[in-house]
């Protein structure tokens, strides 16, 4: 299921995948260590890393890695996943992309659908929020009035609320909810049938611009993509 076959289409480059997994793994470790500090009943998570003090350090260091990968995430995906393509995206939102009820013809969308764009924007927005509130909670600078410092904590919790919920939606839709998607983030090649179903406009655009890369040789035109 995961092998690359002739005729498959290039969806992501190695850099995108590297950034994605750096972001994802640091984020998941932040979730786990954060949960270890959120509820006393989950304090045992600290036992795997030599105590809760080490858990705090792991959390803080992962925060820096997460923040660092956030810079690349936002800069490389902003154009594709950060801006809505109206009115086409709106048409898609109105039928929820055919995900929730039967839709005869789902409006055609590009490389990322509006749901993915919302997820990207939530990750970017909450990511920046988590980084900013986290740093202030960690350093508690003198100049910050106490009542403002206090609100950093519920804001950090709000960011977690959002990211954690979206995370499960993302895993579901990136794996079993959309078979054929996961490999886009493993080796970067997707099947033509997947592309046609999921992102027909993206496929057409690549064909028109000659940027389509097909596995097994005959690239339509050898113009560099992006």
């Amino acid at each position: 299921m995961m092998e690359v076959k002739e005729g498959m289409i290039k969806a992501t480059d190695a850099f995108e995948r590297l950034v994605h997994w750096t972001l994802a793994i640091s984020c998941i470790i932040l979730f786990i260590t954060g949960l270890g500090m959120m509820f006393h009943s989950l304090n045992f998570i600290g036992d795997f890393m030599g105590g809760l003090k080490s858990l705090k350090y792991v959390h803080n260091i992962m925060g820096l890695i997460f923040g660092f990968s956030m810079i690349f995430t936002i800069s490389m995906w902003w154009k594709e996943a950060g801006v809505f393509d109206l009115p086409a995206d709106w048409q898609w939102i109105k039928v929820a992309g055919g995900y929730l009820w039967h839709v005869d013809k789902v409006p055609e969308i590009g490389k990322y659908n509006p749901g993915q764009k919302m997820f990207f924007l939530a990750v970017a927005g909450c990511g920046i929020l988590m980084l900013a509130t986290g740093l202030l909670m960690m350093f508690q600078p003198e100049f910050l009035p106490m009542w403002i410092l206090r609100w950093m904590y519920p804001l950090h919790a709000l960011g977690f609320f959002t990211l954690f919920a979206f995370f499960f939606v993302h895993i579901y839709l990136g794996t079993i909810g959309n078979p054929g998607s996961f490999q886009a983030m493993v080796h970067g090649w997707v099947s033509p049938g997947w592309a046609k179903k999921q992102h027909p406009k993206w496929l057409k655009e690549m064909e028109e611009h000659g940027t389509l890369k097909i596995y097994g040789g005959e690239k339509k035109k050898d113009t560099p993509s992006h």
Binding site: G7, I176, G177, P192, G193, K197
Partner: peptide, 24 residues
Amino acid sequence: HYLIHGPKLPDETGETTKKAEGGE
């Protein structure tokens, strides 16, 4: 959602399409 609505499967009618990978 997976049980009731089911996954979004790849388009099998495409001319270059190979067998669709079914949902596990």
